[in-house]
Design a binder for these strands. Structure first.
Length: 221
DNA sequence: GCCCAGGTGGGTA
DNA sequence: TACCCACATGGG
């Protein structure tokens, strides 16, 4: 399989940042919570909500299911969209108990396409959230496409940022071996690359390990 | 004060 | 299919 031009991008990011070993969570179920809470939300706000949930010992399917809705909304308040997200979290755990005995591992033990269909059928779980759960909670090789992925790779001239989610996901999955460790690091490195430049308020081509691969950077020389 | 962030669902043409 | 909008907080 030809991995050009995706392998060189990965190699440079890995050399620059080193392995990141995502997701920043202490359990697979915490990945699910983080994936829902981070929808269109800065991770710093999500962290505050997760601290509240941890303090309340609410980071388990059982605890979340039993929590009063108003209480849950209060815990996750800092993450924004708290009414929507409280509903989505409880719909998720309700489904988990109704269909998998409250065991996330069982849901994620199904073959990837089946587990993905199941997740996508849930209200509040779109393609990015589903792929994040599959990859980072389940260790399944499902490539995650997010706003950073679109921004970085359109900047590199490799894809159209406005293309549908599934076509961008296919672009990566058709060109990379289906290895969860590779997909894990790749997405984490994309996020790290974009976050760094965001913090520094720099355009994507400045101080970037991908300079040599970036047509936009070249045109500015 | 304004803009944006690791989306999703519902409605309309 | 392609837009539009609601959803809400916190940091730059």
């Amino acid at each position: 399989m030809s991995t050009a031009p995706l392998q060189p991008v990965f190699d440079r990011l890995l050399a620059h940042f080193g392995p990141l070993h995502w997701w920043p969570a202490e359990s697979p179920f915490e990945v699910v919570i983080g994936a829902i809470l981070t929808q269109n939300t800065a991770w710093t706000n999500v962290e505050k909500a997760i601290v509240n949930l941890r303090r309340a010992e609410a980071l388990t399917p059982k605890a979340l299911r039993g929590a009063p809705r108003a209480q849950l909304e209060e815990w996750i308040h800092p993450a924004g969209f708290f009414r929507q997200k409280a509903e989505r979290l409880q719909l998720f755990v309700d489904y988990l108990f109704d269909h998998h005995d409250g065991d996330l591992g069982r849901l994620l033990a199904a073959p990837l396409p089946e587990a993905r269909r199941e997740l996508l059928a849930l209200k509040g779980v779109g393609p990015e959230t589903a792929d994040s759960i599959l990859l980072y909670a389940g260790g399944l090789p499902s490539f995650v496409v997010d706003a950073y992925t679109r921004r970085l790779f359109s900047r590199l001239g490799l894809l159209d940022a406005t293309a549908p989610y599934e076509s961008i996901r296919a672009f990566f999955m058709e060109r990379l071996p289906a290895e969860s460790d590779l997909f894990n690091e790749y997405h984490a490195l994309i996020v790290e690359q974009c976050k760094q430049l965001c913090r520094k308020r720099q355009p994507l081509c400045a101080d970037c390990p991908l300079q040599e691969l970036c047509p936009f950077a070249k045109s500015q020389q």
